[in-house]
């Protein structure tokens, strides 16, 4: 399942964003942020204790089942009174959740998390970005591995000169995407695919910010 991968902002940044705002309502998310241990029940509880220790009044807290879902509007209503008493909402969800909530309420929102990427859990506690939704998919020519996302330079015509023991020049913990592609195509006996000169990418596939409407 695709997940929105988040990490908590530095404490000082959160303190600064909440500066002068004494009454805080807190919102976590039961989906991605729970999985990444950034905005589930335990993290919301810990944040509450931390804020209380700093003299903030926490008017209430909740963990939405799926913060980015439209049902969030209904769930927020149940806490209308506590939300109404707050100066600010401290939101421990990804930015999809923050924006979904911000649209529902006439309140300032403060994100407690940074949204890193849309990724996949590829091992226990390990998350990888595997698609950047570029709008012009070339997976059919790369053995199903995306160089646009997985190569730090987004190269589409093969590796740069920095591959070292199958790892990327900038991070020895990260596989070189083109080494993976080479190995996969070799297994599939399709190395000829690497000879194809890929044209400059079409960034107009869906220019950012994306907007899409189903035709009737």
């Amino acid at each position: 399942m695709i997940r929105s991968i988040t990490q908590q902002k530095p404490e000082e940044e959160i303190d600064q964003l909440l500066n002068g705002l004494g009454r805080v309502f807190m919102i976590g998310c039961g989906t991605c942020a729970t999985l990444t241990h950034t905005g589930g029940e335990p993290e919301v509880k810990a944040m509450k204790e931390n804020l209380s220790g700093k003299g903030k009044l926490v008017t209430g807290e909740m963990v939405l089942p799926v913060a980015c879902d439209n049902l969030t509007a209904e769930a927020l209503k149940e806490h209308g009174a506590q939300i109404g008493q707050s100066d600010v909402l401290l939101i421990m969800t990804c930015a999809f959740g923050v924006q979904t909530i911000a649209r529902q309420l006439e309140k300032m929102v403060v994100p407690a998390l940074d949204t890193l990427f849309i990724g996949k859990e590829t091992g226990l506690g390990r998350f990888d970005e595997i698609c950047t939704q570029c709008g012009t998919c070339i997976l059919g020519e790369t053995g199903g591995i995306c160089p646009v996302t997985s190569c730090h330079k987004g190269l589409v015509n093969g590796p740069c000169g920095g591959t070292s023991n199958g790892k990327c020049e900038i991070d020895s913990e990260k596989d070189c995407a083109w080494t993976l592609i080479y190995n996969r195509l070799k297994e599939l006996n399709r190395l000829d695919a690497m000879r194809k000169l890929q044209k400059p990418r079409n960034h107009q596939g869906e220019p950012s910010p994306g907007k899409f409407k189903l035709s009737a």
Binding site: G158, P159, T179, Y182, R195
Partner: peptide, 14 residues
């Protein structure tokens, strides 16, 4: 000298 070595001559050809 970058690896995989087998890719380096085909890359020159490309």
């Amino acid at each position: 000298f970058a690896d995989p070595f087998e890719i380096r001559v085909p890359r020159l050809a490309k």
